[in-house]
Design a binder for these strands. Sequence first.
DNA 1: CGTAGACCCTGCGCGC
DNA 2: TGCGCGCAGGGTCTAC
Length: 274
Amino acid sequence: MPELPEVEVLRRSLEPHLVGEEVARVEVRSPALREPLDRASLDRGVAGRRIESLGRRAKYLLVDLSGGSTLAVHLGMSGRLTLAPADAAPEPHEHLAIHLASGKKLRLRDPRRFGLAFALPTAELPADRHFAHLGIEPLSEGFSGEALARAARGRRGPVKVFLMDATAVVGVGNIYACEALFRAGVHPGRSVARISRPRWDRLADSVVAVLSQAIAEGGTTLNDFRNGSGESGYFQVSLAVYGREGDPCLGCGTPVRRSVHSNRGTFYCPRCQR
DNA sequence: CGTAGACCCTGCGCGC
DNA sequence: TGCGCGCAGGGTCTAC
């Protein structure tokens, strides 16, 4: 489910339910995620603490806890984080449950197990190996065509791969990379070395527009977390090219084409995107 | 040193 | 209907 907009929608929808809650206990049901869940570290850094706020960095959801501790959760490809009554039967692939003193539990389900969850002292977060290498936040003040051009300097390869490279820009995954490139009229296979400044400007604008719109649209359907259904607004988002191979381009009617970049499907209009 | 590709894992939808 | 195949929104590691 998660690129930046999905994580941001999740953050906003969970926050009012979680802030002020106290963590009663941490239940590690199955530790086998991308990195094994560390029961002792989660106990130390999460159990018994109060949730103060929810943040986000890249595609990580950050649960800030009392005493200067942070719980970081990454949903990978198939992760779902939902609220449920504490006595609700565990779902299949429910790896972790954060039990709250109020009688609810925050549960992490992740069939493909590409996700992560770990605790760390908040002060150590910037230097932590999961975060230290991350690039610019696309919805932050400093993001612009100039910032993109600067990040791309000295790099090669297709611009689509660059947009999805978290050491350059964070939060842009496969869907929104395709959508932003379509909106900007830029061919996904174009080399980053051959992107003019006006194109970088258009690309930056498109990335911001696509992510913002997705957040806004996801935000219209975010009552799910009360009933724990786990659905998000994801499929409500109107996609222009992603998943539309062979269907007419919304701009010119040319069939949308699919190619592959670093093992990820790429959707684009061969006529509108150059 | 970058960059391209393989790989981690399970589930689902499609074509036969 | 049943089954095998390809594909899936993540990141990282290795071989060039």
